[in-house]
């Protein structure tokens, strides 16, 4: 039962990533592309957690935590750059 659930969840996350790539490619404006990248890192955290479940190991949670932190910081940095023309004033 867990195997089937893992496959279904993996398929849904991969379709979500494909939709994010679609929005990243056609996004008409800069904030659309930023939002697509932001969603992509959240979905990639889900992918890493599913990989940890599949391989039955807990070694990947540090990677997931690092991706969460760096993704948040980079999104905030690009937003500040677009808003103010400078990151650290």
């Amino acid at each position: 039962m867990l195997d089937i659930a893992l496959w279904i969840s993996l398929a849904l996350i991969l379709m979500a990533l494909a939709l994010n790539v679609y929005r990243l490619a056609i996004g008409p404006s800069l904030p659309d592309r930023l939002l697509a990248l932001d969603t992509m890192y959240v979905n990639s955290i889900a992918l890493i957690v599913l990989l940890g479940l599949w391989l039955n190991t807990k070694n990947y949670f540090e990677a997931a935590l690092l991706i969460a932190m760096l993704g948040f910081i980079s999104t905030v940095a690009v937003c500040k750059y677009v808003l103010r023309g400078d990151i650290i004033e």
């Binding site: 039962m1 867990l2 659930a5 849904l12 996350i13 979500a16 939709l19 994010n20 979905n43 889900a46």
Partner: peptide, 24 residues
């Protein structure tokens, strides 16, 4: 417990997919 874990996995995948569908 296996059923509960499977439910949370599928619910999580479905919510993530719906969010990205809204984005696209």
């Amino acid at each position: 417990l296996e059923g509960v874990i499977a439910f949370f996995l599928i619910a999580g995948g479905a919510f993530a997919f719906i969010g990205s569908l809204g984005l696209a």
